[in-house]
Design a protein around this nucleic acid. Structure first.
Lengths: 344, 344
DNA sequence: CTGAAAGCGCTTACAG
DNA sequence: CTGAAAGCGCTTACAG
């Protein structure tokens, strides 16, 4: 077992200075051709590769980006990571991932850990708890230190930075409108608790669509779910009362649970109950019936976020300590409705 | 925007030496109490945190571990990452993730990128192409440099290192046995191409179960799928001929596709066709009918792999340049059958 | 009790 | 054309 070779060792072997070796390997014309080629051959033979850590320290940049997400075992988020990886790789960056587990403390801890020089910038989506508390000091701090941050999906207006989102409100509007267009009158909304930013926005879109179409907005038809496992009872009760003939679910897990519950009760989807879910994931595609969804391309969001972040990082190299230019932008990714079997 | 404060700046402000600051912050008793407290207070006030990169360079260890996996948008793999994250965090390590996209070249590139000092060790699962080519030089190289590697799931006997696997063969055996026990006689195997190590092992288990039970082993009942999207035809043909009454599918995607195809043809699952899938994922749980699966706890695999790796890393600190102790171990994670609606 | 020096592995402005 | 020196931010053995 031989450790990786260093400049120092090469220099010693070849009886030249470290500077000469370094310059030769970077193909500096300062060095005579003979020496240059000799050094290069030697380095190649011993498979020399510069030490990233040393480079990072010297250059004060690490060529890696930190991702903080609530959960990794979640189709949407892993899709986003994929999108980030793609462009990161393209630009020669690697990707450090930390999971907040929807916990505020973990989010803070992870950010602090990475902010101490390990990465050049963050891409993040807020944990539920962080959104609930409304405490974003850890993010402000990082930004104040001059480290660029791009937020996606679960973002907040309280932080000024680049963002990548979808238009949750209008996407929800569109979904509900399509239910109305197909003749549904009593449309339920199955959603999460309010403090999750995207949940709130989707609720707004739902409400607006109803009102714009002259349909009553009935609080009783809004089901806020904290825990997926216990929602079956609520749902079956409402279904039993024939309280609604269509459902707009704010994620596909809710949607599939509703469909299964309905089936158990002998209701047919979409005949008796039409279902649309937010976020086109793996479940919707393989459920029976397959589920009509609002696509939300995590990959595209990831691509975009990574591009924005890397541009920021590399722009800062120039105007270094100058005034931070704060023309932050919020990129809105297109969504569209993917019609499947759960609607007619 | 003020950059993070450094020891140097603190030293200057307080008019002491850098050494004194460093020692004070590490609470060295070498330093007089008065100075120590003064420095600590100052550092706390300015929220000093040591620069990780500098520490890494100094200590020649980064406290981060590299993960190389074929795909991230894949329930099983994200589950493993989750498991790794958990124990990594516990031990103060962070996690750098690279996706090989099942490409040999990307796998090599990613490993080289991380091996140049960025991480202390690897946890990896081989890409399909790597398994196909049987070229593992990049892994040998990394190991020869003294960097510990733990492989999981898609492993190879050609590399000596720690491994975490499940007993694919006996798990497959058990699954097929349970189909036989419930009276099935013509059991098809739907699997991937042979060079994927786990696919091969599962096939072996399938064959053994048949033979042990005196059932004919019929090549025609083995369907090797390269591309999920085009397998429907093959499957429907075989179903049409009533060639089999049960299926053991080597992953849940195959299983759900088979069920959907059967349903379309008017066949009932499990009455006309019993289905068991390998790998308990999200689809099996939400498919209709729900699918009986062989559980394969990715989280546990991740936990174990991370523990093994970190132990290796921290053990090496002691016997540093000494002889590499090569008592590598292969950990076998328990699996069990989760009975659901697709079998009777 | 405090600090100067060497060093982790590299780069680059500056001398010679 | 080559090399010594300074520096990135830290730690620690060694002097004083």
């Amino acid at each position: 077992m031989k450790r990786k070779i260093t400049l120092k060792q090469i220099a010693k072997e070849l009886d030249v200075s470290i500077s000469t070796v370094s310059k030769s390997l970077r193909n500096s014309l300062e060095i005579g051709e003979e020496t240059r080629l000799k050094v290069q051959a030697f380095a190649k033979f011993y498979n020399y590769k510069p030490n990233n850590i040393a480079l990072s320290l010297k250059n004060r940049k690490t060529k890696s980006i930190g991702i903080i997400i609530p959960e990794i075992v979640h189709y949407f988020f892993s899709t986003v990571i994929n999108g980030i990886e793609q462009v990161a790789n393209e630009y020669g960056y690697s990707v450090v991932i930390c999971v907040s587990d929807d916990s505020f403390d973990k989010e803070v801890l992870n950010m602090e850990m990475l902010a101490n020089g390990s990465i050049d910038g963050f891409i993040m989506s807020l944990s539920k708890e962080t959104q609930y508390k409304g405490d974003f000091h850890h993010i402000t701090e990082v930004i104040n230190q001059g480290m660029p941050v791009v937020m996606f999906d679960r973002v907040t207006n309280d932080i000024l930075c680049d963002k990548v989102i979808i238009d949750d409100k209008s996407a929800a509007y569109e979904a509900v409108q399509s239910l109305i267009d197909s003749g549904r009158k009593k449309i339920a909304l199955v959603t999460t608790v309010d403090y999750v930013s995207v949940g709130k926005l989707r609720t707004d879109g739902y409400e607006k669509a109803l009102l714009d179409n002259g349909l009553p907005f009935n609080e009783d038809l809004i089901i806020k779910i904290e825990d997926v496992d216990t929602c079956e009872i609520t749902i079956s009760q409402l279904l039993h009362d024939r309280a609604f003939d269509a459902v707009f679910a704010v994620n596909e897990l809710f949607a599939v649970t509703i469909i299964k519950t309905a089936n158990k009760m002998g209701l047919k989807v979409p005949e008796d109950l039409a279902v649309i879910a937010f976020t086109d994931g793996i479940i919707s595609k393989y459920s029976t019936p397959t589920i009509t969804t609002v696509s939300q391309s995590g990959e595209k969001m990831g691509n975009k976020a990574a591009k924005m972040l890397i541009e920021r990082i590399e722009a800062e190299e120039d105007d270094d300590d100058e005034e931070h230019n704060e023309n932050y932008i919020t990129e809105v990714i297109e969504t569209h409705l993917i019609k499947r079997e759960s609607t007619d």
